[in-house]
Amino acid sequence: MTSREKILNQVRQNKPVAIPLPQNITFATVTEPERLPAFVKSFTSAGGVVSIVPDFTTIGQELQVLFDQPERVMNTIPAVGYGLAPTDAIAQGHILANLEVAVVTGSLGVAENGAIWVSVENIPTRVLPFICEHLVLVLPQSKIVGTMHEAYAILPKSFPDYGVFIAGPSRTADIEQSLVIGAHGPKRAHVFILENE
């Protein structure tokens, strides 16, 4: 008997009585007018930076002020118009080891916790939002939902090959519970919220 059969047989024999899966439970949400302020609060409490901007061009202008070397910025959103655009999928993420800034689309934001969904469909390689020193996320205000329940209701049932909720810069508090921003991933996470998209 294979281990697979052995495990499944023993589980079958020993499993407790099944109860139905809880369905259609309504959880309290964040009301529409409260979503933007709640999102800003969550993302900044996690150590992130938030700017609310009217359009893509403004993001490009602000990035120019923050990072004066466009060749160190990988920009995956053409409308932002600042930095280098990847022309193809990147087979080896290793080449990004010294990347300073990545500009990436966030397709969904969650007010209750400041998490932003980044799908592999919007990035040339999976490691991009982790390996850069500064992560810039662009999120339309209209894509902010109240809670995680609403987020999963919107995400496609057939998940992308890879996707991640990102809620701020990478962090650790493993040494004596002292919060340090910038563990293995970005030391800075900056989200630009587009008002009119």
């Binding site: 087979a91 998940f159 992308p160 090959d161 990102i166």
Partner: peptide, 15 residues
């Protein structure tokens, strides 16, 4: 924390 910084959803290996 309201959520961990990263909640990564792996569905298929990269190319």
């Amino acid at each position: 924390q309201p959520i961990t910084t990263y909640s990564s959803h792996f569905h298929r290996p990269a190319k």
